[in-house]
Amino acid sequence: MIASLVVTLDRCHSDLHRTMDEIASLPGVEVPGPEGLQYRIPILIDSSCPDVLEERTRQLQQIPGVAFVDVVFVHFEDESGEIPGAPSERPTCHEL
């Protein structure tokens, strides 16, 4: 799956540079926007494991200084043609 998101920063947060560093340090997360402090940051997540997208989104939301995370684009690249009905039927993702 390939997804892009926009992370909105809390302008009042005391250390937004640290916030941006934390965002960039998340595994599988690419922050290819222009350098320098922005308050809306485009993010790319590219993973063969759909769970990574979900998990990274949650982690982004929890970083101090992040006000909101919005989804913009999702490409499923699904090969099975069908998703399992029950979570237990899906293999565990080792990227998490």
Partner: peptide, 10 residues
Amino acid sequence: SAMAAAAAVA
């Protein structure tokens, strides 16, 4: 495409 869409929204 994904990145362009996000960058445009941002």
